[in-house]
Design a protein around this nucleic acid. Structure first.
Lengths: 237, 237
DNA sequence: CAAATGCTACGGTCGGCGCCGAACCATGCC
DNA sequence: GGCATGGTTCGGCGCCGACCGTAGCATTTG
């Protein structure tokens, strides 16, 4: 039994403001150094170091040393999942979007960003919507599937569908795109194995590019064409 | 944007040992009084009252006054979801099941229990397995669906399938059973709308009965027959 | 109207932990 | 080697919050 004590430990770890900022900074799935995280959280290096030590020993974060740097990343997608579900609850409490918070940086984040290992923001929901309207995917509250035609489509654009299929079961219908509620759009987008594959492909084919060291991404001209013509997605932003 | 501050607030609320116990006690979806929760958490009534007030105003819990009692329940399935995902992360930290923890009470919990609004424990996974082997459902890591034959099956046994369908989208294939990883079995079982409907039906038809005031349930003789003959489920416990 | 029960409000105590300054290792560069 | 940079360890400070005792309010029961 997962004791309530360890449950509380994990939740308390995520419940400190400084640590929460660090975890959010790691939500793009990349690895950051301790000092970057310290700066992000607005604390000194030694404080951040302590936090990171606790989070690694609790299995929230893992380290990977490389030269004199120590890169930290989220330990697993389960952690990212947990954070999403906490955000989900937290978003119900927010005062209905004060909207005055912008800045170009924020705007870029809203337009398109990564969410651990998949795409979110307006781009993320636009792609999910496009997949749905073409009958490539079927999304509902609790889960989603990629249809047979959707699978064919993914194969055409270059996704290694076989690698995805192993996780699905024996029948003709293929499972597995987890809807992930977006904090800015409040709409589901494609997560799970398919979402991750699509995101990886988009980077690989240079449809999107990461903005320096943030979670935000920009759609390249080539990507815009692909998303418009192949996906039939409406990208307003 | 769901600010990291509110994120931290929610996580910190779940991160206190006493509150964690209370939340766990509410995971069966029922409503409990403040004093019951106080006893469960091992704190005095006034302390528990304070905790409950904070959790209520944060939207984790909601109250429902009835006479001189005030019943508390989890505010939404999103909260239950969040707790499940935290348990998920927490279970990775546990020292591989010390197994010596038993007692008849614990045994009953492992055999069959409710998990917010659906069934878990050996019963829960047995039903999920049975649904899968009969081709009624297709479960994978990120999501699951009920097949057409599965829908017919649910209709036959008395589930109001139309009520479920509204949440699904327009195509022939129906979505929506979220796999929920079990803390005792470490295997997925049926959650989401279908899981909830199945659980409700089982109580209604008297296939299962709740053990006094715990999350544990017992399978009635009639239920055992139904689960064996209709579902073809193997109930070892 | 009392008396009892369920719950909440207030004040005070105390332990835990988040924070920093300073000192201490490790790696890389000149 | 000397020096700079990235990171961790240690000690001490200060604050937040979890807790309880007492007291107060609402509702039901006698």
């Amino acid at each position: 039994m997962t004791s309530t004590a360890t449950f509380a430990t994990i939740a308390a770890l995520a419940g400190d403001p400084a640590r929460a900022v660090m975890l959010h900074a790691l939500m793009d799935g990349r690895a950051l150094t301790a000092s970057e995280l310290a700066r992000a959280a607005g604390v000194t290096a030694q404080t951040a170091s302590g936090h990171l030590a606790r989070m690694t020993s609790a299995g929230l974060v893992c380290v990977e040393k490389q030269g004199r740097h120590r890169y930290h990343r989220l330990a697993s997608s389960a952690v990212a999942n947990m954070m999403e579900s906490i955000m989900q609850v937290a978003s119900a409490l927010e005062p209905a979007q004060p909207r005055l918070t912008v800045g170009p940086r924020d705007a870029a984040l809203r337009a398109a960003r990564t969410c651990y290992d998949h795409l979110a923001g307006r781009l993320g929901v636009a792609l999910a919507d496009a997949m749905a309207t073409h009958g490539y995917a079927d999304l509902a509250g609790d889960g989603g599937i990629v249809t047979d035609s959707g699978f064919a489509f993914l194969g055409r654009i270059g996704v290694d569908v076989e690698a995805l299929t192993v996780r699905s079961s024996r029948r003709g219908v293929r499972i597995m795109c987890r809807p992930c509620l977006d904090w800015s759009e409040r709409r589901p987008h494609l997560a799970g194995a398919v979402g991750a594959a699509l995101c990886a492909l988009s980077f690989e084919k240079n449809w999107i590019r990461r903005i320096e060291d943030t979670r935000a991404v920009v759609v390249t001209p080539r990507g815009a064409r692909v998303f418009r013509e192949t996906f039939g997605a409406q990208l307003v932003g």
